[in-house]
């Protein structure tokens, strides 16, 4: 019990990094996901193939491998080390964000793609018949419907990303899991630390879950 109270402020402090990593990766991931979803639905074959393999590779391998390739692996590439990009790739923080972004981007692109595919053709035809131009149709009809459609799946992806940030601890970052591991390995009291750190994670997933629920209600046009 004493250890739980003692470690709480330290774990809470580490939570800031966890939240930071989650939000930044999700933010960038939305753009990456949207970009590849657009490529996937385009009519040009090569774009479809690129997008397909991107999501296939990033969804078919563990996130841990992706982080290790980016953090440990790319440091080996000579021209990268000499280029200005090295500022980005030598830091574990930015490497973690790049890995998380690419990973969540792959899942997000699938979510967006299927959301766009479920839009009824009749709606688009009706909009066309009403004389709306393409931009209007996209921003006023397709996008709002797709956002609403993808919300439940995206909520799950947000929670998966939150859990995924725990892997940042494998590249020396001290996020919530990293600090929890440090405390466990110095005190050998895994249960107490797990309860505190686990509760913080559960609280965050609870918040995400409810946030999505509220959004879903707000976007329910049928009511």
């Amino acid at each position: 019990m004493e250890l739980m109270i003692e470690s709480f402020p330290r774990l809470l402090n580490a939570t800031i990094l966890t939240i930071e990593l989650t939000l930044l990766s999700l933010f960038f991931g939305i753009f990456v996901g949207a970009f590849f979803a657009v490529l996937r639905t385009s009519k040009i074959k090569i774009f479809q193939v690129i997008s397909y393999y991107y999501s296939y590779i990033f969804r078919g391998t563990p996130l841990l491998v992706q982080i290790f390739i980016i953090y440990f692996g790319l440091g080996q590439v000579e021209w990268l080390r000499e280029s200005f990009l090295w500022v980005v790739f030598k830091e574990p923080y930015s490497c973690a964000i790049i890995a998380f972004t690419l990973n969540t981007g792959a899942y997000t692109s699938e979510i967006f793609r299927s959301a766009f595919e479920t839009i009824q053709k009749g709606l688009i035809e009706a909009a066309d018949g009403l004389g709306l131009n393409k931009l209007h149709i996209f921003f006023k009809i397709k996008l709002p419907l797709a956002i609403k459609q993808s919300l439940p799946a995206y909520g799950n992806e947000m929670i998966l990303m939150l859990k995924g940030t725990s892997l940042a601890s494998t590249v020396t970052l001290l996020d919530l899991t990293g600090v929890a591991k440090h405390i466990i390995s110095t005190t050998f009291k895994p249960v107490e630390v797990f309860i505190v750190a686990g509760s913080i994670y559960l609280l965050m997933t609870f918040i995400i879950h409810n946030f999505i629920k509220i959004l879903e209600k707000k976007l329910d046009y049928s009511k």
């Binding site: 859990k163 725990s166 797990f194 994670y201």
Partner: peptide, 8 residues
């Protein structure tokens, strides 16, 4: 399902 795998 809510706690990271690594922590478990």
């Amino acid at each position: 399902r809510g706690v990271p795998e690594l922590l478990v």
